[in-house]
Design a protein around this nucleic acid. Structure first.
Lengths: 339, 339
DNA sequence: CTTCGCGGCTTAAGCGGTTGAGCGCGTTCC
DNA sequence: GGAACGCGCTCAACCGCTTAAGCCGCGAAG
């Protein structure tokens, strides 16, 4: 219950608290012999610096914040975040930095949380995910001067770090693959149109379709939920010139699509190839297993944390590119049906 | 960039910082008129208390910790945690309390994290999930005297809070339902045997099976992964007197079971009824949709946070029971096959 | 008319660290 | 031999807030 303070260490070592502080922080000002003695005592007593005291004088909170702005229901299904967080953690805990989490419904609440955290000096920096094309959080972050790293494409004046994957190349490779399989009518079921990466992927898809001369690109926008994924799929498959392949922006919608195809009597992959945009265990749990774009989300989190810590440390904002997601082919894609 | 401190407020209000402190904290010691004036100034200046300073004198960190001790891979699939966290958050943010998250691989690392957090005074209390029958964290929590609440059945000397659901009743109702459908050979694919709630559910299952006179209860233990779920299912279905109904401890394994049944040519629910132990969106994403035990996980999180905050506040440790999970019947269960 | 009590405020000591200034002492340099 | 220097340490201020103790003036009680 009683805390060990540097005062106690100082007493036992027969020096002042200042000396102890220098010794424990590896700064010059004490002899090697004294330092060793102090470290030994600190270790024996199990001393740990009081975060509050350290923050108060050092003005560092030793925590970073992650605000997840999504309806709780959609968060649950996405296996993405847990892996991402695990990755963040991996880097942060090594640097003795805590991760403060906030789950809110929308960006207005996120902005509130950011302001509060920063005002209270609860965090030293932020991880920003689910970037919108018009994002209410960015002006606030700029205004406050909070170190932040975007889990997404670089943005703004370079004050923020960024870690992202090349979605364009990933979409390209998907379309190329489907075209090689003989598909000519390829559609895309996209996620939230407000999201930055949705736009990038849609643009990439359009460009790829046009490049292959497949006519007017067909894209349906959704909110990422299974319901909308099913609705979009139903709409696409009800047309006389229905697509023979559909790309989905996440795996939940791709799974929903499997059910719609079944309900409409359209065999997968015989008459319809389904391609999921995220690869999670969900993809291998369903039948047919889903071909998906897969990448290392934990590494994504780890690198994000690393860039943020550097930024907090005063080093320049880096922009790190992850390895491009690669297509993991499973049972949901096949050659286009003849005719 | 420059912080507003109570010193500044005091200056403008023409009083001492002490008076400001009393006023802002709603404590007696200042006149109503002065209080109003101070509050007005604080508001105008956008003052927020420095967490560090407050923690240092008040010795409260205004955060609680959640250590998730699971391999990152299994965390991702479980939609449970995100909803649970969202529930925690709902209560915590109202009380201006932060949630510190740590994702570690095992209990040894969890114990380390707990010790560190407590030593640094980073948290005021802990939420403990995934309780083991023999849990290495509990002695440490007791030793340190950390306020903590168990997301699980009450344990120990009553110093800890607990929030749990009546798993026994839930398992009972599942078995009763299957028996009513005419099933006589019912098996259970359980989760990690080390987990407390696994034991409770297995015990409940055994008792229910014996109560109905269904012979020796058949239980297979797993680690909750899809792979082991599939393996267990395969083993059960390969026996000459294979079960006509299987209860799974989570939904991931139940989904895996669906695939195994398909691969073995056993129709679900025609010859095999499948019942999932957790209800998440996964259950409605697959075909047939899974009958599952469902309950309000967000409420679970919310109540857990509430009990913890009370405990931190010095009020007695409460033990709160959630509503018993109820069976949501979908397409994976049906009357037992004739003969 | 003194004494007491009390509301309303100030003072100052902490909380547990960090950090610049200062000080005594042995070396080195001219 | 005295000045200059650097090492190893102490001192004390400070970070922003809380809070026990004290003080002052005023009305009520004795």
């Amino acid at each position: 219950m009683k805390r060990v303070t540097i005062g106690e260490i100082a007493e036992r070592a027969g020096v002042s608290t200042g000396a102890v502080s220098y010794a424990l922080n590896g700064r010059p000002g004490v002899s090697e012999e004294t330092r060793r003695r102090i470290l030994e005592i600190a270790d024996r007593l199990g001393w740990r610096p009081s975060l509050a005291a350290r923050s108060l004088s050092g003005s560092r909170a030793h925590s970073v914040g992650l605000v997840l702005a999504r309806p709780a229901d959609t968060l649950g299904v996405e296996p993405f975040f847990m892996r991402f967080i695990a990755g963040l953690e991996r880097e942060l805990s090594g640097q003795r930095t805590g991760l403060l989490l906030q789950v809110v419904e929308d960006h207005a609440a996120a902005v509130e949380a950011i302001r509060l955290w920063w005002a209270e000096r609860r965090v030293d920096g932020l991880v920003v995910t689910d970037l919108y094309a018009q994002d209410a959080r960015l002006p606030v972050i700029a205004e406050l001067g909070v170190p932040a790293v975007l889990a997404g494409r670089p943005r703004g004046d370079g004050a923020l770090g960024a870690v992202w994957a090349d979605d364009t190349a990933a979409v390209d490779s998907s379309v190329d693959y489907l075209v090689a399989l003989g598909h000519r009518r390829i559609a895309r079921v996209a996620g939230l149109p407000a999201l930055d990466h949705t736009r990038v992927r849609v643009a990439a898809f359009r460009a790829a379709v046009l490049r292959h001369g497949l006519g007017e690109p067909r894209v349906v926008e959704t909110d990422y939920t299974a319901e909308e994924g099913a609705r979009a799929t139903r709409a696409l498959l009800s047309r006389p010139d229905r697509p023979t392949a559909i790309l989905y922006d996440n795996d939940v919608m791709a799974v929903a699509a499997l059910n719609v195809a079944q309900e409409m009597g359209i065999p997968v992959p015989g008459e319809l190839s389904v391609l999921a945009g995220d690869d999670s265990q969900l993809c291998v749990l369903v039948r047919p297993a889903l071909t998906a774009l897969s990448w290392d989300i934990q590494a994504y989190g780890l690198h994000t944390a690393r860039v943020l810590l550097e930024l907090i440390d005063g080093r320049p904002a880096r922009s790190h590119q992850e390895r491009t997601p690669v297509l993991t082919v499973r049972g949901s894609t096949a050659a286009a049906p003849a005719g």
